[in-house]
């Protein structure tokens, strides 16, 4: 479904990711773990098309098509969804209006008619229930004045509404209390099926208790130094990252 081949990327001429390769099958959950500064967020940024990062070599094959030169919105329309570590707040842009624009933009790409306001509200309300999100947040500015947990719930709400094929969760668990983390995991688990794939970028194993990964990769200094199953995450939790060096 999604393949990374020998990907190298960096920022401002400095190489951060070095010849990374990954092969994610439909329905799989891959966890990317690693210490601070190992390149986890760079990876999320490169896949979603943030032009702060330069891709210097390699391919990003999404359903067989290299997406590395596509605009971020085109990748989003194809089904790449990034749950941001730091969702941007834009006062004045209504959360609901934003979600409508996003949903309909992706529907248009898929050749579907836009949803009218009634269908849309119904859809959004039903998804909000799933993650126990306060409906008032819909009428506020986009992430404007949201708490950390509310922002992450908002990311998950967008994910549920957009029904992407590949979801990247970039440190979605950071700074969340246990209830918020459960809500995030519930959201993710609700849309897990044999077609949809996930990349879960995290520093701690905590989140993986709720979203069980098929494969765990350890990223260190921009390279994948080890891959394994869920047990690898448990070992990291117990022993930290020190033993890797």
């Amino acid at each position: 479904m999604f393949k990374i081949n020998n990907l190298s990327a960096g920022i401002g001429g400095k190489t951060i990711l070095k010849e990374i390769s990954l092969d994610i099958k439909p329905g799989q959950v891959h966890a990317i773990m690693g210490p601070n500064g190992s390149g986890k967020s760079t990876m999320a940024g490169v896949i979603s098309g943030n032009d702060n990062y330069e891709v210097t070599a390699g391919e990003l094959l999404f359903d067989g098509k290299d997406i590395k030169d596509l605009d971020p919105e085109e990748r989003a329309c194809m089904g790449v969804f990034l749950a941001f570590q730091y969702p941007v707040s834009i006062a004045g842009v209504n959360n609901m209006v934003f979600l409508q624009a996003s949903i309909n933009s992706i529907r248009k790409y898929k050749g579907l008619p836009p949803l009218d306001a009634f269908d849309l509200i119904e859809l959004i309300k039903s998804k909000m229930k799933l993650i126990n999100m306060n409906p008032d947040l819909l009428q506020r500015g986009l992430n404007d004045g949201f708490s950390g947990g509310e922002k992450k719930r908002n990311e998950i709400l967008q994910m549920l509404c957009l029904e992407p094929k590949l979801v990247i969760l970039d440190e979605t668990d950071s700074g969340l209390d246990i209830d918020a983390m459960k809500a995030v995991a519930d959201g993710v688990n609700a849309i897990r099926d044999d077609q949809r794939s996930f990349i879960v970028v995290t520093h701690y194993q905590r989140l993986l208790d709720y979203i069980k990964p098929d494969v765990v990769h350890i990223l260190k200094d921009g390279e994948i130094v080890m891959s394994g199953d869920y047990k690898l995450a448990l070992k990291l939790e117990k022993e930290g990252y020190g033993w890797l060096s």
Partner: peptide, 17 residues
């Protein structure tokens, strides 16, 4: 970028902001 990553094209994203 945030808006683009949600599938909104550049021109629309600018107008929206």
């Amino acid at each position: 970028f945030y808006l683009q990553a949600r599938g909104i094209n550049l021109e629309d994203a600018k107008n929206m902001i």
